[in-house]
């Protein structure tokens, strides 16, 4: 039986996906990341439907969300997750290039666990991913699984 992927990354830009995975790899955290390209796919994954109907059951330990995505955007995904008792306990980190105050405020209002603005400097980004991984994946004790 395959191990449950532990991190879900929702990001539409292929360059960003590659760089993010690179950053995770640099920090040796890249083994368990599933990537989706829009908000709809992210929700499909979380609810095990559509292309993810057959995926092994279980919630990811962390969701990394880009805000600006086609179809369903990051804030909508966040809102849906925090409304659902089964999903609301999954830590969500918004990973975006937007510094818009309204985005930050809205994200926190919806109950995001962290908001990270991707720095232009790649080494800084690698560092940020490292800290993120250490805290949310290694240190944080996930809540008991809701079935």
């Amino acid at each position: 039986m395959a191990e449950v992927p532990r991190i879900l990354l929702a990001e539409d830009n292929i360059d960003d996906i590659e760089l993010t995975l690179l950053a995770f790899k640099e920090n040796k955290l890249a083994n368990n990341i599933t990537t989706v390209r829009d908000g709809e796919a992210a929700l499909d994954y979380l609810y095990c439907r559509g292309e993810f109907a057959q995926r092994p059951r279980g919630n990811p330990v962390l969701v990394l969300l880009d805000l600006k995505m086609p179809k369903v955007d990051g804030l909508e995904v966040l809102a849906a997750m925090k409304k659902d008792p089964k999903l609301q306990s999954i830590p969500v980190v918004v990973l975006t290039s937007s510094r818009m105050e309204s985005d930050v405020v809205e994200s926190y209002n919806l109950g995001v666990n962290a908001y990270v603005v991707k720095p232009v400097d790649f080494s800084e980004f690698v560092n940020a991913v490292k800290n993120l991984g250490i805290f949310w994946i290694l240190l944080n004790e996930p809540p008991p699984e809701v079935v």
Binding site: D15, L19, L22, K68, S97, M100, K118, V120, F122, S123
Partner: peptide, 22 residues
């Protein structure tokens, strides 16, 4: 406009930096 500058303009810049660093 500011939003698009913030998001759209910074993204490729990051990519340049990221891949160049790699």
């Amino acid at each position: 406009f500011a939003y698009s500058v913030s998001h759209d303009l910074r993204a490729p810049l990051r990519h340049i930096d990221g891949f160049t660093s790699a």
